[in-house]
Amino acid sequence: DETGKFLVLALYDYQEKSPREVTMKKGDILTLLNSTNKDWWKVEVNGRQGFVPAAYVKFL
């Protein structure tokens, strides 16, 4: 149950560059965990948590 969690859509592919980031593919649906930083949002994708560039995702 994803109640209270926001979902975001990956607009572009992103390859993680550090262990704190996660890789996503364009079209992936991600669970948004934290968006307090304007540049990097914490998400969960494929069972992994990490950061992606905020400009690469949008709210569903």
Rank of each mutant, 00 (worst) to 15 (best):
K38H: 11
Y56S: 11
L33K: 05
K42Q: 12
G47D: 07
D28S: 06
M24N: 00
E21V: 05
Q49V: 15
T31F: 13
W40I: 03
D28E: 10
I29D: 01
P53Q: 02
N37R: 08
G50S: 02
A10Q: 01
G4K: 14
E16W: 05
K42E: 14
E21R: 04
V22N: 04
T31N: 09
N46C: 08
G27S: 03
S18K: 07
T23P: 07
K42N: 06
E21Y: 05
P19G: 09
K42S: 07
L33Y: 04
G4R: 12
V57I: 11
Y12D: 08
K17D: 06
F51Y: 15
P19W: 08
L7N: 07
D39I: 14
L30G: 08
K17F: 05
N34Q: 10
A55T: 12
D28R: 02
W41F: 10
L9C: 09
K17S: 12
K5D: 10
P53H: 02
L11N: 04
F59C: 14
N34W: 07
K5Q: 15
K26H: 06
L7C: 10
D28G: 03
W40G: 00
V52E: 01
K38P: 15
L9D: 01
P19M: 09
Q49M: 10
K58S: 13
L33C: 06
K58M: 15
N46E: 11
Y56Q: 06
W40D: 01
V43H: 00
D28H: 04
E2N: 13
K38V: 11
E2A: 14
N34V: 08
R20L: 15
K38A: 11
P19D: 14
L11M: 12
K25D: 04
G4M: 12
V52L: 02
V8P: 01
P19L: 10
G50M: 04
N34L: 08
G4V: 15
F59S: 10
T23Q: 04
V52A: 03
L7R: 10
D39S: 11
D13S: 08
L9S: 06
T36V: 11
R20F: 15
N46Y: 08
D1K: 11
E21F: 06
G27P: 00
T3Q: 12
S18I: 04
V45W: 06
A55Q: 11
F6R: 14
L9H: 05
D28W: 09
K38Y: 08
E16K: 14
E44F: 05
K42P: 01
L9Y: 13
G27F: 05
S18C: 08
G27K: 02
S18N: 12
M24T: 03
T31S: 09
K25Y: 09
Q49I: 15
L60W: 11
V52F: 01
A55F: 09
E2Y: 04
K38D: 11
N46Q: 11
K58G: 15
I29F: 06
T3F: 12
T3Y: 14
R20E: 13
E21A: 05
L7S: 08
V45S: 12
N34H: 07
L32P: 00
V8G: 10
N34M: 07
L60P: 06
G27D: 06
W40S: 03
G50E: 01
T3N: 15
Y14W: 11
K26Q: 11
G27V: 01
Y12A: 11
V8M: 09
N46M: 09
K17L: 10
V45R: 12
L33E: 02
F6Q: 15
P53I: 03
M24I: 15
V22W: 03
A54L: 02
K26R: 11
D39A: 10
M24S: 01
K17I: 08
E44R: 07
K42C: 12
